[in-house]
Amino acid sequence: MSPAPDPTTHPGGGLAVEFTDAVAIVGGFPVLAGANFHVRRGEIVLLHGPNGAGKTSLLRLCAGLLPLERGQGRVLGLDLVRQRADVRRRVGLLGHGNGLYVDLTVSENVAFWGATVGAGAGEIAAALVRMGLDGRLATVAVGRCSAGQKRRTALACLVVRRAELWLLDEPHASLDAAARDELDDLLRKAAAAGATVIVASHETERAAPLATRQLAVAGGLVVDDTPSPGVGRGT
C-alpha cells in the first residue's frame, strides 16, 4: 500500500493534484494500482522509479488522457472524472513527443498553440525570447531543428498556453548543458509564479535539486514520498 496523502503536514496553498486509491488501466493492465499522493500548488515534484513503474501513466492521468477507473482524483480542484475537459484546458503535458508540427516553423508552432488559448502576439514573442528561440531560429522549420531546439520549442508552447500544471516526462532529454540550466531556471520561475510542476525523470541527480519533493513510483504505486535534498525554489 502506498503512503496515504497527508496535506496537513505541508503548509501552504491548496492542492494541485490529489489522488486516492487511483487505478488506471491500459490494455487490460493496471498501470496504476491504487496510487495515493498529492501535490501542492506551486510545488516542483520529481517522480522517479524504474521503467514501467507508472510514471508516464501517472502524468497522463493528471493530464486527463487516461481514464480514472477507480478511486478518486482531483486536479487543480477539478474532478478528474466529471470535469476532464476542464482539467485538460489548464494543464500542459510534455511527453515523449513534443507535440509539434515539423513542417511549420518554430514561431508558427508557438503561435498556433498560443492562438488556441487566445494568446496575443506579445505573449507569443515573449515565449520565444524566453526559450531563446527568437531571431533566425524562429523562422526555421521544426523538422530541421535539433532535438534540443525542438524540446525548447515545445516548452515555449507550454509557456504560451499558460498551463497551471506542468507535466514533464524526461524534460532534460536531448538538451545540452546550457539548455538544461535554462530549463531548470524556467521551471523554478514557473513555480515561483504559481504554476505547479511534476517532472518524471530517470536523471534524479539532475532533477532532484530542482524539486521540492520526490515521489518514488513502483508497480503502479507511489511507494515513497520524501522532501528533496535541494531547496529548488530560487529565482
Binding site: 484546458r89 507535440g99 508540427y101 488556441t116
Partner: peptide, 16 residues
C-alpha cells in the same frame, strides 16, 4: 502530421 510527434495528444491536452 498529428501522430508523428504527439500533436493529437497535445490538442487533447490543450482542451481543444
Amino acid at each position: 502530421v498529428e501522430a508523428a510527434d504527439g500533436a493529437l495528444d497535445a490538442l487533447r491536452v490543450a482542451g481543444v
